[in-house]
């Protein structure tokens, strides 16, 4: 097949949207945290924990949606840990974030080995099945790509709409955005900056964990080590690329995923002339490139990474 023809096949876009789904959840999660003023580098570990928690719930006999819920709860717990250390205590968001990633990852691996000491190949579960939306899924290419996905992918798109609506149309969203731009103005309204930021990090972390769970209970059907493989860090780049706006970040995630799906197919038709590692490097290299392109005009939330103490200026 010609390298360009791939772009017009429905199966390519179905794969792209599937690859985008976990990134969309986690990018929305990171976006909420950062809009409230907290950089959450726990993302990589929280996604790992979510991937395991969701999968293990289903493996132990739970419903698929129970898996999603448990993953979200586990994510929120790690988010609360992160938030307690970085918001009221004002500790370095870099160091705490890396610490949370190391802790969540190692706890996950420890638990995995504890509950499944003897397995050599990861046990499988019955994951979410694609659910074609009647009518819409018959539209060629676009309809097929968007509407023959699993319910969890539809939820990813719903989460973007929900995050956008809450951030821009509700008082809570206004408070979150203000906490990341001008926290003393929030305090002047009688709203607790600490409360808003902690809530945002907990909710954001829950979304990251659901993104992780997507991999184990929707895209694949088992949990294995290192399965997040830098997706969390890529989501941090996607938030910057999307200039902290849900819609733009969504487009970024889909573009990124399309590129990722494309490199896999290019790899197949290149016939082994170019080492496969070059293709695998591309998504990471592309993320760095995207950061460079947008960096000049990036408008960070003004209070990002600045701890807030009540009564200080």
């Amino acid at each position: 097949m010609d390298a360009l023809e791939i772009l017009f096949t429905a199966s390519f876009w179905v794969a792209a949207i599937r690859i985008a789904s976990p990134l969309i959840f986690a990018t929305m999660g990171e976006l909420i945290c950062e809009r409230a003023g907290v950089l959450n580098l726990g993302i990589e570990g929280i996604m790992t924990a979510g991937a395991f928690a969701g999968w293990f719930t289903v493996y132990s006999g739970g419903d698929l949606w129970a898996g999603v819920l448990v993953a979200a709860l586990v994510g929120a717990l790690f988010g609360l840990l992160h938030a307690t250390l970085t918001v009221p205590l004002g500790l370095s968001q870099h160091v705490v974030g890396i610490g949370v990633t190391l802790l969540a990852t190692s706890l996950t691996y420890f638990t995995y080995r504890l509950v499944l000491p003897e397995v050599t190949s990861p046990p499988k579960i019955e994951p979410f099945q694609p659910l074609a939306v009647p009518g819409l899924s018959e539209i060629p290419v676009v309809g097929e790509a968007l509407f023959t996905q699993t319910p969890l992918t539809y939820l990813a798109f719903v989460s973007v709409a929900a995050v956008a609506w809450i951030l821009y149309r509700t008082p809570v969203g206004l408070a979150v955005r203000a906490a990341g731009e001008n926290p003393s103005a929030v305090e002047a309204q009688g709203i607790s900056v600490t409360g808003i930021r902690m809530g945002a990090v907990a909710v954001g972390s829950a979304l990251m964990a659901v993104g992780g769970a997507f991999l184990t209970i929707s895209a694949f059907n088992s949990f294995f080590f290192q399965m997040i493989n830098g997706r969390g860090w890529i989501c941090i780049a996607l938030v910057v690329f999307g200039s902290w706006r849900p819609g733009k970040a969504l487009i970024g995630a889909i573009l990124f995923a399309a590129f990722d799906a494309y490199q896999v197919r290019l790899q197949q038709i290149s016939g082994g002339i170019v080492p496969y590692q070059v293709f695998l490097m591309m998504p990471y290299a592309l993320s760095i490139l995207a950061l460079i392109l947008v960096a000049r005009r990036a408008t960070y939330p003004k209070a990002l990474m600045i701890p807030y103490q009540k009564g200080e200026r």
Binding site: A285, S287, I288, A295
Partner: peptide, 27 residues
């Protein structure tokens, strides 16, 4: 240089480079 010249956060770039370099070594 990306940090000082372009304002690109070095946390993300150094993290992503870990993956790129490991693939490079594998190659």
């Amino acid at each position: 240089v990306l940090k000082t010249r372009f304002g690109v956060d070095e946390v993300v770039t150094t993290l992503l480079l870990n993956f790129i370099v490991l693939l490079f070594v594998s190659m």
